[in-house]
Amino acid sequence: MKKIKYIKGDATNPSTAGTQIIAHICNDTGGWGKGFVLAVSKRWKKPENDYRDWYKSGTHFNLGEIQMVQVEEDLWICNMIGQHKTATTSKGIPPVRYEAVESCLKKLADEALSLKASIHMPRIGCGLAGGKWEEIEPIIQSTLLENGIEVYVYDFESKI
């Protein structure tokens, strides 16, 4: 079975050959403006524009859905709706929804297999979404790695 390859670096700049998909978590409120999406928007405008259009359309804009956006010949961004709203509830429930992340990653696996692509991501769901990597990692294992897909997880290394 494949294992996640952990890399220090920038998930918006994958360093492997072949077709690549950069996957990240979005919220279900149409908000785009904090966290990893800022790095995405700095490099490409299309993922944000397509996400905002998707939200406005209301068509299949639900937890567990994905949107594939081609930004270069062999590079795609996968907008995954795996976060409900943007704040932790008064009961302490973070915005991440693990079952939605799993649903997104199952759909992403199908896309990756059809494109023969590797997957590149930050530690999805663990930043602003408030999730725990020990919950996310097994979901990646069961959805992507068990399908033989190469997965690279990037820990950003600040240049300061």
Score class of each variant (00 low, 15 high):
G9N: 01
G9L: 03
A11I: 04
A11R: 05
T12Q: 08
N13D: 03
N13H: 07
N13M: 02
N13Y: 03
P14W: 04
S15E: 14
S15D: 15
S15N: 11
T16N: 04
A17G: 13
G18P: 08
T19C: 10
T19D: 06
Q20W: 04
Q20K: 15
I21Q: 07
I21A: 09
I22V: 14
I22F: 08
A23N: 09
I25Y: 01
I25K: 05
I25P: 02
I25M: 14
C26G: 01
C26F: 07
T29V: 04
G31S: 13
G31L: 09
W32V: 00
G33I: 06
G33M: 08
G35H: 02
F36E: 03
F36Q: 00
F36M: 00
V40F: 05
V40C: 07
V40S: 11
S41F: 02
K42G: 04
K42D: 08
R43T: 10
R43P: 06
W44T: 04
W44P: 08
K45S: 14
K46G: 06
N49I: 10
D50R: 05
Y51A: 06
D53W: 09
D53C: 13
D53Y: 11
W54E: 11
W54F: 12
W54Y: 07
Y55T: 02
Y55I: 12
S57G: 07
S57R: 04
S57P: 09
G58E: 02
G58A: 04
T59V: 13
T59N: 15
T59G: 08
T59I: 12
H60F: 12
H60G: 13
F61R: 03
N62V: 11
L63K: 02
L63R: 01
G64S: 11
G64E: 02
I66L: 04
Q67R: 11
M68H: 00
V69M: 12
Q70N: 12
E73Y: 15
L75G: 00
L75M: 01
L75I: 06
I77V: 11
C78N: 00
C78V: 00
N79Q: 11
M80I: 09
M80L: 06
G82M: 03
Q83H: 05
K85W: 07
K85V: 10
K85Y: 14
T86R: 10
T86G: 11
T86V: 12
A87I: 14
T88F: 11
T88P: 11
S90D: 15
I93Y: 13
I93V: 15
P95L: 02
R97E: 12
R97G: 05
Y98Q: 13
E99S: 15
